[in-house]
Design a protein around this nucleic acid. Structure first.
Lengths: 207, 207
DNA sequence: AGAAAATACGAGTGGTCGCTCGTGAAACGA
DNA sequence: TCGTTTCACGAGCGACCACTCGTATTTTCT
């Protein structure tokens, strides 16, 4: 019986080889990523040991290292998976036609709201941003930049890029508190975030 | 010959005792803090080893542990020292009388500018904020809250506290990029930071 | 001068962590 | 059925790290 297998990399005896992943293996990768996300959320990236991830995923350290060459690769793959989920959640906000006409507060809400619910349902995502580089950051920043360019086509490109980078950093900065806060306060903080963004983006550039 | 000595804590043989610090000892503490700040700036808090701090300060690990019981205490003392320096640099901005009358952009500049130059001259300060709790954060946030309360006395206290916390988080979020950027870009980013703050604080609360 | 206090040293200890490797079980393909 | 590939295991290795301790030196004070 012929079957189709996803080709992917395995890391056995210190060597990187190409293997035909079985269904079991693909499931294992998902389990590792799930465990890593939960563990990162609890203890942060640096303080999370790979042995703890393996234990949480119900496997031995050796099994874990058949699917990832090192700890960093786990975080990278996790960032990628989260970024994909985020892109999907954001599709409605970004892939629309009439972004140019929409009032700024509405536009901000359309971008911020899915972002908030994404981070609320994935409380570990913020440590992949906070403690490690910017893989999630840049993914969003690029799309925000494109959106801003569409709205104010006469602004110089550097200004647009800077504005979107700043806006993304503001969102990232407040997201931690938003996720951590209990519900009555959380809504208030989301409201403040939107106020900050609209206030920032509304202003004429020459102040 | 009688001399006056500062009493402080020593940590010898695992026990905490009170000693009469000599001038040499006080100098050593300064050297440890200097070395720690430089090392934190280079490698971050977690990845900085106490042995590396000791080596950078030109002393043995044992000597370092005569002045601090553990790594965290070094970071705490350093945070305290930086907070004192910052408070001094901010005295002019906060201790003024007519804060209520000043236009918002001017007020923002008076607060932000010393903050920026403080972080530029102490590039290690931001990791004490970024990777470890909020000792520097809260110190500034309280003063900002007092300032905001003075300006809009009719706002509810919760709103004021929230606004100042958000403002401080915005500053903290952008400070990293500001410190890292070379000079032409740095000024532009500072300008963006001020725009963000004025835009945020200018708005009527009910948006 | 001489005892006591404070400072200084640095090899060493116990512990953690990322990662490996030899071995064996399960699934696949013929 | 049987060889090959993929998956699984877990003790343990080497490196690093926060911190200790016995000892030696310097300063203080009488």
């Amino acid at each position: 019986m012929k079957r189709e297998y996803e080709r992917s990399l395995a890391f056995v005896k210190g060597r990187c080889t190409v293997v035909k992943r079985q269904a079991r293996g693909r499931q294992r990768i998902r389990e590792i990523l799930d465990a890593a996300l939960a563990q990162f959320a609890e203890t942060g990236y640096e303080k999370t040991s790979t042995n703890a991830i393996a234990a949480r995923a119900g496997m031995s350290p050796g099994s874990l290292y058949q699917y990832f060459p090192n700890k960093e690769a786990i975080a990278d793959a996790l960032s990628q998976r989260l970024l994909d989920e985020l892109r999907e959640a954001h599709a409605a906000a970004f892939d629309d036609t009439a972004v140019t006409e929409l009032p700024l507060p509405d536009l901000v809400s359309r971008v911020v709201d899915p972002l908030v619910s994404f981070h609320v349902t994935h409380p570990g995502a913020k440590v992949l941003i906070g403690e490690r580089g910017q893989p999630l950051h840049t993914g969003v920043a690029d799309r925000v930049a494109a959106l801003l360019r569409a709205r104010s086509s006469e602004s110089p490109d550097d200004d647009v890029r800077r504005s979107s980078a700043v806006a993304v950093q503001i969102v990232a900065a407040l997201m931690g508190g938003i996720v951590a806060a209990p519900e009555p306060e959380r809504s208030a903080l989301v409201h403040e975030l939107k106020r900050a963004l609209t206030g920032y983006l509304n202003q004429p550039a020459g102040l």
